[in-house]
Amino acid sequence: MKKFALPLLVAGILLTSCDPEKKPEIVNLEVVVQPVFGAGNAPVSYNDASYAMGTDTVKFTRNDFVLSEFALLDEQGARVDIRNEYAYLSLPNRNSFTLPTTIAAGQYAGFAFAIGLDSTTNHGDPSIWGGSHPLNPAVNNLHWGWTGGYIFAAMEGYYQKDGAQTPWLYHIALLENRMEVVVETPLDLTDFKTLTLQLDLEKFFKAVHALSPNEDGDFSHSTFDNGLAHKLSENLSQSFQFASLENQTP
């Protein structure tokens, strides 16, 4: 009997490790952001397509973001923070990021993140970040250089003004305009999943405040703008919505 002990042990370990039903104890989470427009969630076509926005017709050319302070909401609604992670999105091409395999597998009630950075990180030395890090200014082109700090959201495009295509540009920055985004939805994260969120760009102009490039101003660098950037930041924080949660494809 003794001579069978070792082979049996090995076979047992092999069988256990090959159990297709075994779920991981920790998982990562891929997050994809899809830009859409309006109630029909029509995919946004950048640069060329025009979208009716009240009395305006707008095009989108740039939606770049610095994201931080990711968290899942547990079933009691408490935050489960995913610390020291940052992401840079430049829609539509760079539209995803993956949070590391440190998330306790389980059921959650939502996903949260900040658009922008805390004051310390925002005003820290940008040269410390590695060559491909989301906060490296050469990667994101969102750092304001010697004046310090990052643009949290760079939203740009064109609109029709007096029959002519005219630029609009909103660069949302400064701590008072940092945005908290919370998407409440049941999330089964018992395995490695891809969470797809939609960014409804119509809501960017009207989720909280109905704003128009023609009537409310077509540019802001977050200062001397009569509070426009702050209103836009409140809109933007309410512009994300759940789309899907699927198993990651190998």
Binding site: P126, S127, W129, G131, N136, P137, A138, V139
Partner: peptide, 11 residues
């Protein structure tokens, strides 16, 4: 030798 203040390059 990355000059002071420069971001790190992705070589």
């Amino acid at each position: 030798q990355v000059p002071a203040g420069f971001p790190q390059p992705a070589l």
